[in-house]
Design a protein around this nucleic acid. Structure first.
Lengths: 147, 147
DNA sequence: CAGGATCCCGCTAGATACTG
DNA sequence: CAGTATCTAGCGGGATCCTG
């Protein structure tokens, strides 16, 4: 390829991937991480579960067991939990550690990469909880206006 | 209800909703915003479309036309674009403005609420593009390890 | 130009049953 | 405990045709 200016090289390295393009791999990755269970799992692992009453802020990242995640993410099916955990492991966002006790014990833990995404996922969960009232108000206003 | 500061209202909202609970409305809201098209639309409206070559950083938030969004979000169907725009409008994240020209001209624009979510959505899109290589490497490593 | 309406296929989430 | 395997209903979402 021909010589590029510094600005062009910067643009190139920053725009190596573009999720606006249908064929770009980052589009699929974006689709993957834009998932309810991904968000909740990463939020859970990164914050040590639900914020405890009497403490401010969330906890530290810590490993969690399958059953613990299952209990925390109310309503998640075994299938979706396992499936999502596998895909997160494959993408290198979490690690899976099985110790051969009886019965077997399995821990899931964030990797560095997972931790970087966790920040966003927790913010997203917080955003939803924080602006729920406002969204609810907007919806009812919209519905009465349209109806 | 007694007067509350903004900080108190935030604390109240946070205490009221918990996306970890299946029945909580914020769980549904989280599911809504955890959507590929939501992410891309908000990223587009908040950054004035794709970053231009020769400039660093994304653009300013600006209104965009339906056809412009349609072109920018490569591969989106009319149905999904319209459907997603409607839901975003209903939730008060964007506004829809139609001017009675011939043919009709429609603009979509972020609200303040939408702008607050845009920050997260753009970070998410950036995250996907930034860590694409690393995820790809993790996947192939995982696949060879399992296979 | 900016959609609305309709048809229909594919996939996926969920339920259920079973296991190392 | 931490999954796997299988089945199925439901709907997300694309394609197509039509319109103010």
């Amino acid at each position: 390829m021909a010589t590029m200016t510094a600005a062009q090289q910067r643009a190139q390295s920053k725009a190596e991937y573009d999720a606006f393009l249908a064929a770009c791999p980052s589009r699929k990755l974006l689709d993957r991480v834009s998932d309810k269970w991904v968000t909740l799992i990463l939020a859970a692992l990164g914050s040590g579960g639900s914020p405890q009453l009497g403490t401010d802020g969330a906890g530290e990242p810590r490993p969690m067991r399958y059953s613990e995640l299952s209990r925390l993410l109310a309503g998640v099916s075994q299938k979706m939990l396992t499936q999502t955990l596998r895909s997160l492991e494959r993408d290198g966002l979490i690690t899976r550690t099985a110790t051969a006790t009886v019965p077997v014990t399995v821990f899931y833990e964030l990797t560095g990469l997972g931790l970087s995404l966790h920040e966003l996922m927790r913010s997203l969960k917080d955003w939803a909880e924080l602006h729920m009232d406002e969204v609810l108000a907007n919806r009812s206003e919209y519905d009465t206006r349209v109806a």
